[in-house]
Write a protein that binds this DNA or RNA. Structure first.
Length: 574
DNA sequence: GCCGTTTTCGGCCCGACTGTTTTCAGTCG
């Protein structure tokens, strides 16, 4: 785990501790804000510290800068160690229980000496807990249920898993009489790579009845809350779903509000206040007068700026960009003309070349590249040179049979541990598309790994670096690589970097996409499909690219076939 | 504890739901 993440987690835990200790709430907010900025930072905090630029990180001032420095130098933060004595870590972890907040936890700690989950469960069973102020039978039951959910809790789920589920839900909710314009909000609408819970918004005049119908849908496992405008349920796979019902005249304001991100909303509201407006989920107001609320666009417009696409609402410069009229014109799924990274039965895929090509055609593409593995990927059925040329013959046959889709002959070639490629140059030069990827030796140190990848990028026949950091969401951290150097090398040698759309990869991530497009490196959005059905994951990659501010011009596979061929030929030594 | 299109000091987003209250506190997003 990177130092950025480690320090961010500590700052978050400090915030939790201060919350329980009832410290100044703005100080607590400062810690949370700093933690968020650190974890979303594209640059290595150690490098920033070396340059004495810590205080240039948003949310980091003199004090937190020193604490970061202390952690880098000594691997601990004294303030944090001191706090642990007053609010033990095991106790703080209990804040993860729904319905149990800092105030209640502090009370349980002080009055009943609750220090961990065991203590809490015992306290719940006893009678003493009912004597605490503000505590009743119902609340005890709530905490009990919270503990149950806490134990079974699913962590954040990858976007690619949640998206199809959410779409089913939205369609079901859309069938409830009186609803209209049912859509996703929250991190789902922003297409974050992982989703905590599913937020859905709908328009209706009779909220009470819609929420009631919602809580009675067949997939509901448990109802957490049910009111006149808002309902919360847990569905059978354990994911929480929140539905908000608003009236049509507030729909835009509510959609904006529930889409977030929180940081984006806070910044926008603060700006609104300074301009004499007030924004809430019902609209934008001056004094008591409601100026707008039906659409998101009106709200931005009254503030004097353009509508901001949800994918970049992270308070990462998009509000400033909007004020300056330089919002990016983000790439769209419909701009994509083909897929340049796919596998077939020839290696570890499940579909034939023809099936892949037909599916690509069905998606409206102009081309698809078939890029099976190279010999070193034994487990993945990597192709020997002989097999590779046999496959080429089949591709030629498919080309003759199929009209309306161009099939490119390619390979996903392993980058071996010394940075050389898994096929010799005279073989690579016969391929239309060469995607070079790391599939082994993930544990190398940063310098060795970076040198390895940089060397591969210097090969004159390589077009694309596949899944450049090797991370698997929720399973494997990225390998230790100096991504900035990789991006600079790609720029220098005219190579493209992949945004792998496979749901557990999304690699490059949004932060690195932004770095790449900022210096003019072309990205290519590919699916790495191992089945024809996986080609549809393209939308996840497009979303990731959009989150990284990529425009159509930044994306190689928005080029038409002829233009693409030109690019491929001019960017290698064929 | 941070930060400056009112400020280097004095602010820091806003409302719904629930339970335990009889006017509000805690929690959540």
């Amino acid at each position: 785990m990177s130092k950025n993440r480690e320090i961010a987690q500590i700052f978050d835990r400090i915030a939790d501790m201060l919350d329980i200790l009832e410290d100044n709430r703005f100080k607590i907010r400062a810690y949370r804000n700093a933690a968020r900025n650190l974890s979303e930072l594209g640059d290595d905090v150690e490098t920033i510290a070396e340059r004495s630029q810590l205080e240039e990180i948003p949310g980091i001032g003199k004090d937190l800068g020193l604490k970061i420095k202390e952690y880098i130098e000594t691997n601990k933060i004294t303030y944090y160690e001191e706090l642990k004595k007053k609010a033990p870590e095991e106790l703080v972890a209990l804040l993860g229980i729904q319905g149990l907040g800092p105030k209640t936890l502090a009370k349980l700690f002080k009055e009943l000496k609750v220090r961990n989950l065991d203590d809490l469960q015992k306290a719940i069973e006893g009678d003493e807990i009912l004597e605490l102020e503000g505590m009743g039978e119902k609340k005890v039951q709530d905490i009990k249920r919270g503990i149950q959910i806490f134990k079974e809790s699913v962590k954040r789920t990858p976007l690619g898993i949640v998206l199809p589920i959410a779409e089913t839900l939205i369609s079901e909710i859309g069938k409830i009489p009186g609803t209209e314009g049912t859509v996703a909000a929250g991190s789902l609408r922003r297409m974050r790579e992982t989703i905590g819970d599913i937020d859905i918004l709908t328009k209706a005049d009779d909220g009470q009845n819609v929420i009631k119908a919602f809580t009675e849908l067949p997939f509901v496992k448990e109802v957490l809350a049910s009111g006149g405008t808002k309902g919360s349920i847990i569905i059978k796979n354990g994911v929480q779903v929140d539905l908000r019902v608003v009236s049509p005249e507030s729909y835009g304001a509510a959609l904006h509000y529930f889409t977030g991100s929180k940081a984006h909303n806070v910044k926008l509201r603060t700006i609104a206040l300074k301009k004499g407006f007030k924004i809430n989920e019902y609209g934008i107001f001056r004094d008591q007068e409601k100026l707008a609320g039906e659409t998101e666009k009106e709200i931005y417009s009254i503030l004097g700026i353009d509508w901001i696409p949800p994918e970049i609402r992270e308070d990462k410069g998009e509000i400033e960009a909007s004020f300056e009229g330089r919002l990016p014109d983000l790439v769209e799924l419909s701009d994509i003309k083909g897929d340049l990274h796919t596998h077939t039965k020839w290696s570890d895929g499940k579909s034939s070349i023809e099936e892949m090509a037909l599916k690509a055609k069905e998606l409206g593409y102009e081309y698809i590249a078939i890029t099976d593995h190279s010999p070193s990927s034994r487990i993945a059925g990597g192709l020997s040179v002989e097999k590779l040329y046999e496959k080429k013959k089949e591709i030629e046959a498919v080309r003759k049979r199929l009209k309306g889709i161009k099939v490119l002959m390619g390979s996903e070639v392993d980058i071996k541990s010394d940075g050389s490629l898994d096929y010799p140059d005279e073989v690579l030069k016969d391929l239309d598309v060469v995607v070079a990827s790391v599939h082994s030796g993930f544990k190398m140190d940063r310098e060795t790994m970076t040198t390895r990848i940089v060397k591969a990028l210097q090969n004159p026949f390589v077009h694309v670096l596949g899944h450049p950091t090797g991370r698997l969401i929720g399973e494997r951290d990225p390998y230790d690589v100096d991504i900035d150097r990789v991006i600079r090398t790609a720029k220098e040698f005219g190579k493209s970097l992949e945004v792998n759309s496979f749901y557990s990869r999304l690699d490059l991530n949004n932060i690195n996409v932004k770095k790449a497009v900022d210096i003019g490196v072309k990205i290519v959005i590919s699916t790495d499909s191992h089945h024809a059905d996986n080609l549809g994951m393209m939308r996840l990659g497009v979303a990731t690219a959009r989150r990284g501010w990529a425009e159509k011009k930044d994306v190689l596979n928005t080029l038409g076939y002829d233009e693409l061929r030109k690019w491929l030929n001019s960017h290698s030594s064929r």
